[in-house]
Nucleic acid binder design. Sequence first.
DNA 1: TTGTACGCGTTATCAT
DNA 2: ATGATAACGCGTACAA
Lengths: 353, 353
Amino acid sequence: MSDPANPRPTLAGVAARAGVSASTASLVFSGAGPVAEATRTRVLEAAAALGYAGPDPTARSLRRGRTGVIGVVTEDRLGDAFRDPINLALLDGLGEELADEGFGLLVLPWAPDSGVDLSAVPMDAAILLGCSADLAHSVEVLQRRRLPLVAIEAPPLAGVVAIDLDNADATRRGAELLRELGHRRVALVTLPLDLGRTRAPLTPAREQEATAFTAMERIRGARAVFPDAGGVSAGGSTVAEGYLAGRALLDVPPADRPTAIVAQSDLLAAGVIRAAEELGIAVPAELSVLGFDGVRLDGITPYALTTLVQPAVEKGRAAGRAVREALAGRTPVPVSFASELRAGTTAAPPPTF
Amino acid sequence: MSDPANPRPTLAGVAARAGVSASTASLVFSGAGPVAEATRTRVLEAAAALGYAGPDPTARSLRRGRTGVIGVVTEDRLGDAFRDPINLALLDGLGEELADEGFGLLVLPWAPDSGVDLSAVPMDAAILLGCSADLAHSVEVLQRRRLPLVAIEAPPLAGVVAIDLDNADATRRGAELLRELGHRRVALVTLPLDLGRTRAPLTPAREQEATAFTAMERIRGARAVFPDAGGVSAGGSTVAEGYLAGRALLDVPPADRPTAIVAQSDLLAAGVIRAAEELGIAVPAELSVLGFDGVRLDGITPYALTTLVQPAVEKGRAAGRAVREALAGRTPVPVSFASELRAGTTAAPPPTF
DNA sequence: TTGTACGCGTTATCAT
DNA sequence: ATGATAACGCGTACAA
């Protein structure tokens, strides 16, 4: 790799060989400033002859004060972060506004003990994605670096541009639909409450210690309508986790069974439905199921899920735009998105006895 | 953001305030070299007072010649690259070997016209993921930069560490199973053949111009057993695309229908099965379906797919290790992985007439 | 149109 | 244990 006899060519080397000064050679590559056609050619020829690949990105970054890299901080393991379709949609949006504009996206799975040291990563700005646990801590170190920060669905933080979603209110509207249909016994299947992703029944204590902002907001919305609603927290936003949660809630004497379940994601809802099917509980005749996200389930379930559709791609675009605004020296405005209740075939009046 | 009155603190500033030289202050932060406990404290205090966030990553990168960033070059749009479960598994492997070791993964969706200029991205090494089209071109510019390169399932390229899979041979073994079961009329549903992702029947001309290495290898393996097998190329590795391909191949007079379909991914296979169901064609009684990948279909289809299981996570780990080897100055050894035929319930003898 | 001079913020080397 | 000096490779005033 590193060949001492044949060092990597530099701008200076190219310039020397072309018989011009380094600054002139620089102009040729940056395109800023006028260069005589003849000199330009000579420089390019020298570059070709030396196998010069263009200005060193690191040196250029230092000089210009820009790396062209935007960090995306997630609290998940790498694969898991992208296993959630809602994050993929978000990535699509980010891609449009950032990747397509020449920015690279640096994925940083952050955990309290993880190898990545946020204070040592070269980047121009950071997007906080589903970070809520020690968010404040991550934020502090990034802010000391004076990096523009954009947080998606996070508790409000000074100096951080918020891209928000009406998690509580949307869930409340969904819950109201269930109440209007006549449901009284409603249970919740929530997203993971903390970094531990514990799969367990909701208890006041656990909710107290929860660090996941989005999950807690959605619980809050549901409780606005069903103050006593209990439920379980899942270990992730997957069909498999939804299934487990569904079994836990539904595999009980019929009299104790909820007549409706508010799931905090469509994947969880699909898992709940599968559990119901397996237990011989008809959806929606005997059990109504509400989802969240509005992702295409693409045959994961034959039902048209009744769910809250969130504008995930738009969220990504907004975050991307906010980053660009900040980098352009302007002050990005926080954005708040609204979800929309989409009626499907999984919500109906409760069974009558 | 940028406050002219209160410039971002630098190591020099901290050193000055602590009354030591910059070199000493540097030692405090890098931990390399002995520093008296008293001085260390003074430096850290000065840093705290000034809000110094630690050495600037860009400057450090320039000086040390390392950024801590590994590029992952894909030819897909950002979201699409991660929509394929096999890539997610790969990412898991990469995460273990790289992210967990403190490297950042810089996702670079590359297309001939895309905004990202590979010659301008600060990184220490690059992993080429499913890049085959103008791979040679991408590789050239990266090699001029003397970056260690690792390619996953790519045509052999000088100086690029190959992480390979037995795509052709595995497919051949799957095809042999079908032949042994008695199948003679077999059709292929392939991954996209080129950047255009054209959804169309296979023709010699199209295969000639194809740029997708993996897809072509798998075709080659299938043809080793069924030399005349035709088929269609899908527009992506998704259930929806598989469904479309399935309709195209199966919605024909029964006499023209294939008795078996070799799909190049499990998602495509699931789509084919769905198409068959919709057309009233029983699987596997009237149609056998072979997949590839061995991903958990998690309820996408009730069938246990007969498929070729590839060690995707291992592939990612191998790629990650190769990168680290190269960065450590050693020469990584290329690795070749083998897939395993896993019998499911979707392959059976063809119907008898 | 081209060259000169300097600095971006750090760290490695070598003295002291 | 600490400090002076010199890069790392480039961009950009400013002068010529």
